[in-house]
Computed example of a mutant assay.
Amino acid sequence: MKKKIALLILGILIIISVGFLIKYINYNENYVTSNAGFIKTDSLTYLSFKVDGKINYLPFTSGDKVQKHQLIAALDTLELNTTLNQTKFNILSLQNKIDSMQAGKEKLINDIKLNSKLNENQLKILNKNIEANRLNINSMKVELKKLKDDYKRYSFLYQRKKVSKNEYETVTTNYNSMKFKIESAQKSLDAISLSKNDLLIKQKLIENEKNDIQKLSKTIKSLINSKKAMTSQAKLIEEKIKDSFIYAPFNGIIAKKYVNKFEVIKKGENIVTLVNPKDIYASIFLEETKLKGLKIGNPATIHIDALDKDYKAQVETILPTSASTFAIVPRDLSSGEFTKLTQRFIVKLKILNPDEKLKVGMSCKVTIKK
Rank of each mutant, 00 (worst) to 15 (best):
K3V: 09
A6W: 09
G11D: 09
Y27E: 07
N35H: 05
F38T: 10
F38P: 02
T41Q: 01
D42M: 02
Y57R: 09
L58Q: 02
G63C: 05
D64C: 00
V66H: 03
V66D: 04
E79C: 02
N81Q: 13
T82D: 07
S93M: 13
Q95I: 04
D99V: 00
A103K: 10
L114E: 14
A132F: 06
I137V: 09
Y151L: 05
R153G: 00
Y154L: 11
R160I: 08
S164G: 14
K165P: 04
N166S: 15
E167Y: 11
E169D: 13
V171G: 11
M178W: 01
M178E: 14
S184H: 06
K187M: 09
S188I: 01
N197F: 08
D198K: 12
I201S: 13
I201H: 11
K202E: 11
N208H: 11
N208L: 14
N211E: 12
D212Y: 07
S217D: 08
Q233H: 14
A234V: 10
L236I: 14
I237H: 07
I237V: 10
E239H: 08
K240F: 05
N251P: 03
G252H: 01
G252A: 02
I253C: 03
K257S: 07
V264D: 08
V264P: 00
K267Q: 13
E269A: 08
V272N: 00
V272Y: 01
T273D: 11
V275H: 04
S283E: 14
I284L: 02
L286K: 01
G293Y: 10
A300H: 02
H303R: 11
I304V: 15
D310K: 15
Q314P: 00
E316T: 03
E316Y: 08
I318A: 00
I328G: 01
P330L: 01
R331K: 15
F338L: 10
T339H: 07
R344M: 02
F345N: 00
V347E: 03
K350D: 10
N353K: 14
D355L: 09
M362A: 07
